[in-house]
Amino acid sequence: MVNRIVRHLLNSVSSLPKTVARLLLNVYNLEFLSREKTIVHLKPYQLAGSPVKQIFLPGVQNQAELTTLVFPPCKAITCQSYVWDFRTGTKKTVQLPYGGIVFNGKILCPDFESYHLVKNFLTARTRTVIDRKTVIVPWSHYLDGIAFGGYYDFVILVAAKMCRIKEALRTQVYTEAVVTYPLFKTAYEQEYLSLIGIEPDHVFDSRLYDVRADRCILANSGHWFYPDPADIFALKKQVEPQLNIARTQQNRIYVSRASRRKVVNEGALLALLEKYDFTIVDDKPRSVAEQVAIYKNASFILGPHGASFTNIIWCEPGTHLFELFPPNLVVDHFSYLARIMEMSYSAYSHPIKMGHTKYHIEEDIFVSTADLEKSLDILFEIV
């Protein structure tokens, strides 16, 4: 009955997420804790923490129009990172389908607030209840494929966080615990989990299983654009020794995109890049090891803004990232990652808009090859 009422409300009114969330919380006698209140609530259980960091990002000229800046200079301020370890006593934790933990009538929020809360209560799927001693919960969000659900989100917000958790726990606790969250269901997810020491039979999709535990390990997501550098280096520490991929080349690579945010005049762009001996990296599935090798062996990376650039965390210091943007989507998280990886960075955003899209994140990109040629000649010191 409750689900039917909520569905009716959602179909009737377009701006109801917060209203419906409040209704559901009242119906189920639950209290939602904001991120700030969750941190306060879990303070007695803090196992590890990393302080806020401020990283200066210099201004970045627009290579399409050098009199303008793509990014003004700013301070990138991270969030404090936490790992919490709490035992539940006589009551076990209950997990919502999209990963959130409910304990003593409170929904904990270690990630990005409550816009997805309603989704937890609209699922018609019956989940299998299982009991475990210790559960690690690294992620609590609905994967919509727009705001959350891609390669960047998994690597930075799940895999890197798992490495933070691993460093905070005793080895036996980490290896014996089960991990449960709404799975991304990708090959790279399975590979990363294996690389950071999680056995396949210790992983449960929270949309299918309601894992109840006596001990719960949580960690928070920090700033979406400015992740804690300690998490990035923890991930590198876990993954790189196992793959053992050394830099043997210094390639100039162009990373193509086949779907949204592709370069509309890519044929002309590729013809120009032949002049500079670029290798073309096609948009197709690759193993984690293949992606690490491509970026480890790159000295110059150019391409449209996209999740593949998450892999610059594998680059050697001094590598140059040159990022292409549509006019309505200019975001600095790869500029930030390049900074903490001690890389060089350039950006290009042409003012021509390539038609209307539902989301700015989907808009394609036009590149003036004449303008780009001038920029590359300067960068490569061609007279």
Rank of each mutant, 00 (worst) to 15 (best):
M1Q: 15
R4N: 15
H8G: 12
N11L: 11
V13P: 05
V13A: 12
R22N: 14
R22H: 12
L25Q: 12
L30F: 10
R35V: 11
K37E: 15
I39Q: 05
K43H: 10
K43F: 11
G49L: 12
G49E: 13
I55C: 03
L57W: 00
N62W: 03
E65S: 15
F71T: 05
C74S: 14
A76I: 01
C79D: 15
Q80N: 12
V83E: 08
W84L: 04
D85G: 07
D85F: 03
F86G: 09
F86R: 06
T90D: 15
P97R: 09
G99I: 00
P110G: 04
P110E: 02
E113M: 12
N120T: 04
T123Q: 12
A124H: 11
V129G: 10
V129Y: 09
D131S: 14
K133N: 13
H141C: 03
Y142P: 06
G145T: 01
I146S: 09
Y152W: 15
D153N: 13
K161P: 01
E167G: 05
E167W: 02
A168V: 02
T171H: 13
T171V: 15
E176P: 01
V179N: 00
L183G: 02
T186W: 06
Y192K: 02
H202R: 11
F204S: 01
R207W: 00
L208A: 06
Y209K: 07
Y209N: 07
R212I: 03
R215E: 06
C216M: 14
C216N: 10
N220P: 01
S221A: 15
S221N: 13
P229C: 04
A230T: 08
A230E: 11
I232R: 02
I232P: 00
P241W: 10
I245D: 01
R247I: 07
Q250W: 02
Q250P: 01
N251T: 08
N251L: 15
R252M: 10
S259R: 08
E266M: 07
G267T: 12
G267E: 12
A271W: 08
D283L: 06
S287M: 07
Q291N: 14
V292F: 04
V292Q: 08
I294S: 03
I294G: 00
A298L: 06
S299D: 14
G303D: 08
G303S: 06
S308L: 05
F309L: 13
I312M: 07
L321G: 01
P326Y: 00
D332Q: 14
E342T: 08
Y345M: 03
P351V: 07
M354H: 05
Y359A: 12
D364E: 10
I365S: 05
V367C: 03
S368M: 12
T369M: 09
D377Q: 06
V383M: 11
